[in-house]
Amino acid sequence: MTVIDPLVPVLAGLLVDNIRFLDSCDDDEVDPDCAVKVMEDVASVLKGLPSEQLNRLLLAVEGLAETESDPERREFLKALPDACGLVEEA
């Protein structure tokens, strides 16, 4: 079993909530081109993490999804790694 620093799930949750906001906000809240650019930049940084760090992040996101009571947020959490290109396609 991998031990995860307690800070990792908190930071992962904040990251997910910010990505979710950018993904769902209206055009008058955030310019769509800016939102896409920020989300692409985030995905690029995450893909560049060393594999051990990326795996810890993915485990934290998976743990958040397992305990999430809001069905919409749970589905977003489950879809995030694939949507950001952080996992290999099977």
Rank of each mutant, 00 (worst) to 15 (best):
M1L: 13
T2Q: 13
V3R: 08
P6H: 06
V8P: 13
V8H: 09
P9S: 01
P9R: 06
G13C: 15
L14V: 15
L14Y: 14
L15P: 10
V16P: 00
D17T: 13
N18H: 11
N18K: 10
I19V: 15
R20H: 14
R20Q: 14
L22F: 11
L22G: 02
D23R: 12
D23H: 15
D23F: 11
S24Q: 11
C25H: 04
C25N: 08
D26E: 12
D26Y: 08
D26L: 11
E29G: 10
D31V: 03
P32Y: 06
P32M: 03
C34G: 10
V36Y: 08
K37V: 09
K37I: 12
V38F: 11
M39G: 03
V42Q: 03
V42F: 03
A43D: 00
S44T: 15
S44I: 01
L46W: 09
L46Q: 05
K47W: 09
G48I: 10
G48F: 07
L49M: 07
P50L: 02
S51G: 00
L54C: 05
R56V: 07
L58T: 00
V61G: 01
V61F: 00
E62C: 02
G63K: 05
L64R: 08
A65R: 02
A65Q: 01
E66P: 10
T67P: 00
E68R: 08
R74G: 04
R74Q: 13
F76D: 05
F76G: 01
L77F: 04
L77G: 04
A79E: 12
L80G: 06
D82L: 11
A83V: 06
A83H: 13
A83G: 14
C84I: 07
G85L: 02
L86I: 15
L86V: 07
E88D: 00
E89F: 09
